[in-house]
Design a binder for these strands. Structure first.
Lengths: 235, 235
DNA sequence: GTCTATAGACTGATAGAC
DNA sequence: GTCTATCAGTCTATAGAC
């Protein structure tokens, strides 16, 4: 329950007006959602004048896009660089193992969120929520994820030759949905698991996402003949 | 035999005012979201007077809750009945196999959405979106899912003895997130998969959800020693 | 139960002084 | 670039006639 009451001391002094607006908007959008956040609440939280948001960003939709412009570049760059490193590690033309591709996909957002910039955490919440949102603001950033999606789609496809196109698309979509739900509200799992899970621990989050993704994507493409569906234990 | 309450008929003419309101609200909430939907739009779509929503539901939040009250009972009942049938099938006190539990969990929403009541499809979209939403309307229906969650939590836990509590909680949470993302926007996978996936086909949806869930939940609890993460193919 | 009319507050956006 | 003041529209909710 963020109250747009008093300006935050830590961001009101040494930031530009636009940065203050983006920080405040990131906070409010992440907690209330786009529609429930008013520009008045944003400017009040940022400690700037109401008219400043239209001056710097043009409109409410422009403000939303500006949030993504600030964060998505570093995130995408890091993800693609990690994939490239994995590719070089296995050698030219060889298939990158599934676990390596998944690590390259999950590691950047998890680590960047943990690197104590609270803004990035909030951004990730907004981005995760967009997976199941609609409206102009959601549509505005479909292309923003396209390049990363294409690269990882190809790498994952190569790592999963035993799946046909349909199975592969289903599982990838569901996996991205699982990730987005986690990013959209990391605290939920801490509550529902009664403390068993710690979404603040990046190593734990990463290991769980990779294990989940490997199991989900790598499962056999046809039902086994016998009944019990539990995969063979580790032994 | 003229009955005062028509149990099932076409949309606008032979429904009560409250049903017309609920149908319209279901449609608009599912497409625009709670915050972006105004009561004016609801009453206009329903073809009723603006004041009727406050008379029948009390408030906008009351309208939202009324939508869930109408749909959640049949859904929960069907899910719990399916779990009970699975339990009787395997015998008293025996562990229900993972695949059977997952089928009991996924089958009711998938089949009910396909059973050509467009309202239930929309309801499922709203419910799926709530997984990554916040605000009064989202908080209002946490208890609504509690009973089903507890029963399936216990059944899944018993089917997965090789996992510790932490791994189990992580995977269950991620799996529910994957399901909710699918329900929140079934058309997205049709577009992104370029037609490979058909979210309108309940058999396909169900089979994919179960295969995904079995792989994700049933994966080994520790990393295998060797590198390649792709699970063994079906051969 | 259904309607009209409206209260009271909030919304995004802009004009124009400084 | 930053401010005040304001426009024109929206919102939820309610009072009161019928």
């Amino acid at each position: 329950m963020p109250t747009p009451s008093t300006p935050r001391s830590d961001r009101s002094s040494s930031s530009t007006t636009k940065e203050k607006i983006l920080d405040a908007a990131e906070e409010l959008f992440s907690e209330l959602g786009y529609d429930a956040t008013s520009l008045r609440a944003v400017t009040k939280t940022a400690g700037v004048n109401l008219a400043a948001v239209n001056y710097h960003c043009g409109s409410k939709l422009g403000l939303f896009r500006a949030i993504f412009e600030r964060r998505i570049g570093p995130l995408n760059r890091e993800r693609l660089a990690a994939l490239e490193r994995a590719r070089e590690r296995v050698g030219e033309g060889k298939v990158i193992p599934l676990g390596e591709v998944l690590r390259a996909f999950f590691e950047a957002p998890v680590r960047m969120a943990a690197r104590e910039d609270p803004g990035f955490r909030r951004f990730l919440r907004i981005a995760g929520r967009m997976q199941s949102a609609s409206g102009d603001h959601a549509n505005a950033l479909v292309p923003v994820f396209a390049e990363v999606r294409e690269h990882f789609h190809a790498a994952l496809r190569a790592a999963l030759p035993h799946l046909d196109d349909r199975d592969f698309s289903w599982r990838l979509h569901l996996l991205i949905g699982a990730m987005c739900t986690l990013f959209a509200d990391p605290q939920r799992i801490a509550i529902l698991s009664q403390g068993h899970c710690d979404p603040e621990n990046p190593d734990e989050v990463l290991a769980q996402l990779i294990a989940f993704g490997k199991g989900a994507l790598g499962a056999p493409s046809k039902e086994p003949l016998d009944e019990d569906g539990a995969a063979e234990g580790p032994a």
